[in-house]
Design a protein around this nucleic acid. Structure first.
Lengths: 189, 189
DNA sequence: TTCGATTTGTCGTTTATCCAACACTTTGAA
DNA sequence: TTCAAAGTGTTGGATAAACGACAAATCGAA
């Protein structure tokens, strides 16, 4: 399905780089991390880094995407439909991510990170919406996924601002009926 | 001093292979481990294995050497002289190794393993003897290291036979004066 | 024993990684 | 501001690793 035959060396090297980056992120801020730091930690050549990533922002983007997906880890894709359980699952993934970020002080890059998370969310939600959309309006899933991704991310920001103490599932619960009602317009069942 | 600039790729690959081998050794007997098993576990190509090792026995040899050296881990090389402390340290390393072997059932290859351990011991002891030898007799360190390596390994076999319960340092203690007396003939201080 | 299946070593070709060098930009301290 | 040091991104040539294929050896059950 995916790309079943990527060169093992590529997979290995990308893993080394991303893992090293995550490792380093725990120790210093993003702005203080250099490409050299990463390649040294990963024990690969600096030139090899550029073979795989545009630059350090490209790496940030891909690393974040991965971390986010790991958090969503199958929980979401098990179901094809956007129901209550899936919304809670997604929101919990985002808040988990927010928590790990707050430890790893990426101060000054919240905007970039926010954009990346939201874009990932949009893609994920869009895929699920398309599966269950039965109306003729093709643009509907697109705009819905945009609104939902911004909305869910915004909710997580507010959750963070309130001290990250409320259980995420409780926090999002009251919004679920509203979120679902809009979705149901797209599908018949 | 050693080989200061080996290609990082070979270090990485050797590490993957050796680690995978040690990993597999914990699960099955040596005779049931194939080259394919190792390379699959290490996620490297089978041909690459033969680029680094003669065959699986060559790997066994080098892996064992490394494990032994890790056990001796600097403890020995910190001192230049073969004194009581060093003897105890070496003997403890051997018994530790014997213990890990007994878990990892390499049944049927004890002889090979014994030989490898003993050869490593001989090299290590020889190096230390040369450093402190002041007599003109150049052959003396050689034969002494041979006898000591066989002797120490034999003691560890006996220790194992007795159930591996006696603290190694206690077990070897009574032999220390004897071992040292011979050494002192080589050096003046 | 015999025969099929698995494992072993080896080889030639392709590709990913290494390395040193390069010009350019950013940084930070004098 | 100025200048040296550090970081960035790119290149070409060298080399390790991947891959598929191969004959030969070994294994295991009929």
């Amino acid at each position: 399905m995916t790309q079943s035959k990527t060169d093992p060396r590529v997979l290995r090297t990308r893993r080394l780089i991303i893992d090293s980056f995550i490792e380093l992120s725990a120790k210093k801020e993003f702005k203080d991390i250099t490409v050299k730091d990463i390649t040294t930690e990963a024990m690969i050549n600096r030139a090899t880094f550029y073979y795989h990533f545009e630059d350090i922002y490209d790496l940030l983007e891909k690393a974040l995407s991965e971390v986010l997906l790991v958090n969503l880890n199958g929980d979401v894709y098990k179901y094809d439909k956007l129901n209550e359980e899936v919304f809670v699952s997604i929101f919990t993934a985002i808040t988990n991510f927010q928590k790990s970020l707050s430890n790893r002080c990426h101060r000054g890059y919240e905007d970039t990170i926010a954009r990346i998370i939201r874009e990932q969310l949009e893609v994920i939600i869009y895929k699920m919406l398309v599966k269950q959309t039965t109306t003729v309006d093709k643009d509907s899933p697109k705009i819905h996924s945009i609104i939902l991704s911004w909305g869910l991310y915004g909710a997580s920001v507010e959750w963070k601002r309130m001290g990250m103490t409320i259980p995420p599932e409780k926090f999002i619960k009251s919004a679920i009926p509203y979120l679902l009602s809009g979705i149901e317009l797209d599908s018949n069942n």
